[in-house]
């Protein structure tokens, strides 16, 4: 297989707080191939956004990357000096955030924000950059882009603003797009449009996409593979069809219990009894054990490491050879 666009190896992210060091990301690894969409799901606080920020080097003190590697098309980027990392951001990795209403600077015209971003990463003249900006707006589906480009952000609707945000992320044709809940703040009616747009852009440009979302329906329809995160770790990762139809990890089983379709108004995950532990009070052993209907003694003392099971990689003692053998004997 060819080299992945993004490869995250045993990433650790910590926040140093008054109450001690909180491990927000505790050793996660995953790859995203060219043109592939990796869906990332998990309850709020699971570490999805922190993972995205760590990949682009936007973890601010008191947070820090405490270990692991982030490799972009074969080049390690997590240890780059700040100025070189800045050149990677926006040029080779585009980011899209949750709320298009607050992502754009209200005092600058859309044209100014686009041209500024394009000229930061290319050496186009300002008129060439403006032309490219209009093309980008057309590509993300803004009608009459040559007129609309000089509008201010507040003159666009939420869905249109998110298209502008996507255009901004695309300015320098990035290899990777990290979309952090790009539709959560939008009307249900436009959510599907934005997801379709992202999917089309990824396909047309061969861009790798990391798509963080609460919406299992979106994952099922859009992602090639899916990673289920829980308390700073990946509980299960694998091809979307396998994980959605045949989840192995008990937490993933709970999530996939019912997948709402895109038409139904819901962006919440299916409720699993209990709630995710706070970072300051992660249980020993498997972080999921207090909520897990299958938990057994070993789960409360030993942390499950990821195990390959067919196309899935799952972190659960149920799939460990020793457990399976013990069960077979019983």
């Amino acid at each position: 297989m060819s080299q992945p666009v993004l490869s995250v190896r045993d990433l650790h992210v910590e926040f140093v707080t008054r109450r001690g060091v909180l491990k927000a990301i505790d050793g996660i690894s995953f790859d995203i191939a060219k043109g592939e969409v990796l869906g990332v799901v998990g309850e709020s606080g699971a570490g999805k956004s922190v993972t995205g920020s760590a990949v682009v080097g936007l973890i601010d003190p008191p947070g820090r990357i405490a270990g692991g590697e982030v490799i972009l098309s074969g080049m390690r980027i997590d240890n780059l000096p700040p100025e070189e990392l800045r050149r990677v951001r926006g040029k080779r990795i585009g980011m899209i955030f949750q709320d298009p209403l607050t992502s754009l600077n209200p005092l600058y015209r859309v044209s100014e924000q686009l041209v500024e971003t394009i000229r930061t990463h290319t050496n186009l003249s300002s008129s060439a950059a403006r032309k490219r900006a209009i093309d980008l707006l057309a590509e993300v589906g803004i009608p009459a882009p040559d007129r609309r480009i000089d509008s201010y952000p507040h003159e666009f609707s939420g869905g249109m603003r998110q298209r502008v945000v996507i255009a901004l992320a695309l300015c320098a044709e990035p290899e990777l797009i990290i979309a952090d809940e790009p539709t959560t703040a939008l009307d249900v009616s436009v959510q599907a449009q934005i997801i379709t747009l992202l999917k089309r852009l990824g396909r047309d440009h061969g861009t790798a996409i990391m798509l963080v979302t609460h919406d299992m329906g979106v994952i099922a329809e859009t992602a090639d593979r899916v990673a289920v995160m829980y308390a700073g770790r990946i509980a299960e990762i694998g091809p979307v069809r396998d994980v959605v139809q045949n989840p192995l990890h008990p937490y993933a089983k709970g999530l996939m219990g019912a997948i709402p379709s895109l038409e139904v108004e819901t962006d919440r995950l299916v409720q699993i009894p209990g709630s995710m532990p706070r970072l300051s009070a992660i249980p020993t052993g498997c972080a999921f054990n207090p909520r897990c209907p299958f938990a057994f003694d070993r789960c409360r003392v030993e942390r499950p490491e990821p195990i390959q099971r067919d196309l899935h990689r799952v972190a659960c003692h149920l799939y460990d050879e020793t457990t399976i053998r013990a069960e077979a004997l019983a």
């Binding site: 936007l58 990677v88 951001r89 926006g90 980011m95 754009l104 600077n105 930061t120």
Partner: peptide, 13 residues
């Protein structure tokens, strides 16, 4: 604010 975060994510100086 988010728009400063987004400006940083776009790699502006």
């Amino acid at each position: 604010t988010d728009y400063i975060k987004f400006a940083r994510a776009r790699g502006l100086t």
